[in-house]
Design a protein around this nucleic acid. Structure first.
Lengths: 349, 349
DNA sequence: TTGAAAGCGATACCAT
DNA sequence: ATGGTATCGCTTTCAA
């Protein structure tokens, strides 16, 4: 009751004493692997542990064993449904494997990502999963690589989500191919004049998607007027602002706006509405990711679906799987185009 | 390069040796508080640490210091924007305080929550934040309380978000008052006939909100026909199904549907549409939480705003603040009604 | 099988 | 200010 009475935690030693056995036996009964403990003793230990409400000190266990049970996850922004879905997958898989997940937020800043990885190494996690969208060729890239190589040399496992330029395990999301397929589908719906809202082009995710989209159009002889490509934050507001910017520049004869992710696309729809333009009827809109809410906005959003929870699960699974010599350590997750009301199509003339 | 060469991690000992100083000095230079180290030695140690790419083993540090730097966060479902926003606040505050946050998912299951708390105690975190909506009077309640009391007796801090029946620090969200205020506002807009979609009534959050809403109506002499109150999962699909169920039961003269959270309300809007009923014009809809997407659905959703990120920050802040004897350890966060297009109002007759 | 004792990697007290 | 060393809580040889 009195907060000042700070009982020290119950230790294994106390349990052993209570059970009248040695420290070693108590350890074996509680956490040891091989069942080399006499049933009677084992029960006495278990009873003592329960009585004292003992819980193993994981830090001490980690020091003694030389290995932890934690997984470090880095995301760009946990409040973003893209990342939170991936996180859900990682957490789910981890709990099944008896692992604890720690989470950090990079804010999509490569410098921050680097310093987090450095700090995280102190945790000696079994796995570090980097889901924060990374930029390519940043000045931090070399250092990050060195940091992760040191981490792996000490027995850790690093795995990237979506990124594929560094030599580590990766769960590859086919951003390029998905966007390209989307472009193809849209062309077959009759669209010929496009605009795009992209994120910081240093972000691989953004640039890959934009490249896939433009290449897909290019295959049909269609190009996007550079004035119709705007850059914004990788957020809802970035999409909103992007749409406003496009409107200001003049949408002319643009029939469809592609935003490199759903969150931006949804923001863009609101940005259009704010300017008296009705998405779906006045102009079509498409996104990427297939986050849950795209079904519930009006019009429902055409997009490229990524099984995000599965991505998180796969990332963990790859990391936990023994690495066979020469085994392919790239897991590709399939994307698929989902057409919805936001791209009704252009009637054939 | 060869993955089989598993270099053991660099230890403080190695750094001390490299720098030609004692273990103690190296420790003081790297992690000690009082600056009692000669500048020259200090620099030598720092240089050695950098050269060897040393990172403090946090587990070992925790054992030696008898205290960790971690915060354990329990959420109901990380992919739900309500929780992910709170998590964002907790992570942000933690990083500022140099703490690491570990995350677990209760799936809104009290039994799971209890077993997680038990397991989490092994981590010896400084703080356990329970944001997973809890049910009241569950059979696990007593055990949870005992577990948390033991945790606090050992120097830890437990803090609840939203829940207020157990004797621990809490960040209280005024669910009752917010819902009541919403009801009042809606009545003043002219609405008189209501329906509601609620979650499992064992969930305090759901029952408090529903109670506040009905009491708010009651103050104006309005009651909800019990047949117009349906129960569903605390999810988008739960809202969708709830709306469908209401439609099947017959919406009669109902003018407005209140869903106990935004995610459900958004699902409900889609459920109505699926039945040819247009939310906003045919029937009004209101939710609770003010998650980001409610601005972008059509019609934009009337709701009760909760500063979710701030809730997360506050939870951590309360936990970290010294506990004055007799100090009030309840932080209340204000809610506010936000009227939007989904409740256009009933024209006065 | 069981127990004694030597680590694991760091901290902090106690002399010097 | 610096270094030697006991200690933190647990695991794991090594004998018995």
């Amino acid at each position: 009751m009195n907060a000042k009475v700070r009982t020290p935690s119950v230790t294994l030693n106390a349990v052993a004493k209570e059970a009248g056995v040695s420290l070693a036996t108590a350890s074996r009964a509680l956490n040891g692997s091989s069942r080399t403990v006499n049933d009677e003793y084992r029960e006495r230990v278990l009873a003592a542990a329960a009585k004292l409400n003992y819980t193993t000190n994981l830090s001490a266990q980690a020091v003694a064993r030389g290995t932890t049970t934690s997984v470090a996850l880095l995301v760009g922004d946990i409040a973003d449904p893209y990342f939170s879905s991936i996180a859900a997958g990682v957490v789910q898989g981890s709990e099944e494997a008896g692992l604890i997940v720690t989470m950090s937020v990079t804010q999509r800043d490569p410098a921050r990502e680097l310093s987090l990885v450095r700090a995280l190494r102190g945790q000696r996690p079994r796995v570090i999963i980097l889901a924060g969208s990374r930029t390519s060729n940043g000045p931090e890239e070399t250092e990050l690589r060195a940091e992760l190589e040191a981490f792996e040399a000490n027995g850790g496992r690093a795995v990237f989500v979506s990124q594929h330029e560094l030599p580590f395990d990766t769960v590859r999301i086919d951003n390029y191919g998905g966007a390209r397929a989307l472009a193809t589908e849209l062309v077959s719906l009759g669209y010929t004049r496009f605009a795009a809202i992209t994120g910081d082009i240093g972000l691989l995710t953004a640039s890959d998607r934009l490249a896939g989209f433009t290449d897909g159009l290019g295959a049909h002889g269609i190009t996007i007027n550079p004035a119709h490509i705007v850059v914004g934050d990788f957020t809802r507001d970035g999409g909103f602002d992007g749409a406003v910017q496009l409107v200001e520049r003049g949408l002319d004869d643009v029939e469809l706006i592609f935003a490199v992710n759903d969150v931006m696309a949804i923001g863009a729809m609101s940005g259009l509405r704010a300017n008296g333009i009705e998405p779906g009827s006045d102009i079509a809109v498409a996104g990427f990711d297939d986050i849950e809410t795209v079904r519930d906005v009006t019009p429902s959003l055409t997009t490229v679906a990524i099984p995000l929870v599965e991505v998180g699960q796969s990332a963990l699974a790859v990391a936990l799987r023994e690495r066979e010599p020469g085994e392919e350590r790239d897991v590709a997750v399939a994307t698929s185009v989902v057409l919805r009301a936001s791209t009704p199509g252009i009637p054939a003339r």
